[in-house]
């Protein structure tokens, strides 16, 4: 019954903290590292609000022990923008109404980012499939799907430039 020393890599930065073994990655991000951009709606794996990228794959931070994250690369919504410049997906989400209340948004942004890393120009049905593990109560998903398509287009344009 003791705290453990934990070394993490979050958004490319090495961070160290001491945590109780029962703490999930979600709790450590929000409560120990002050990264409250990662949200939670159930803490049981049932909504997708807490999704972050672990080694590039979207996973649920509410069901990952922080202790199991050593030596893995964690990316949260705070790590998406480059400096003050929004990631193309973020910009597309903001422009196209994909974030209404914005609560599901961080989890969906990261899930979409991982999708586009594998499939740069997915079809709308592939996008729906990829975000089907993220509940959104506000949008009806349509504008989210459109924003991911638009984000993919903008990323393509950036690559071409």
């Amino acid at each position: 019954m003791r705290h453990a020393q934990l070394a993490l890599s979050v958004n490319g930065e090495a961070v160290e903290t001491s945590v109780a073994p029962y703490k999930t990655l979600l709790e450590v991000l929000r409560e120990d590292l002050g990264l409250t951009g990662t949200k939670h709606g159930c803490e049981l794996g049932e909504c997708g609000a807490c999704a972050v990228l672990i080694d590039g794959e979207p996973q649920l931070s509410c069901l990952v022990l922080a202790l199991e994250c050593e030596a893995r690369e964690i990316e949260t919504v705070e790590g998406m923008a480059r400096g003050a410049q929004l990631h193309p997906l973020q910009a597309a989400f903001a422009d196209l109404g994909a974030a209404q209340c914005g609560y599901c948004t961080p989890g969906i942004l990261l899930t979409a980012k991982a999708l586009l890393a594998r499939e740069p120009r997915p079809t709308p049905s592939r996008i729906k499939e990829a975000i089907s593990g993220n509940l959104c109560r506000c949008t009806g998903y349509q504008q989210i799907v459109e924003a991911i398509e638009e984000g993919a287009r903008r990323m393509d344009d950036e690559r071409r430039r």
Partner: peptide, 19 residues
């Protein structure tokens, strides 16, 4: 929307984000 940027960067402060 005017608060769009805050919502996509995780900067919107919801009640549980206060410490």
């Amino acid at each position: 929307r005017v608060d769009g940027r805050a919502k996509v960067t995780g900067q919107t402060r919801f009640a549980d984000d206060f410490a």
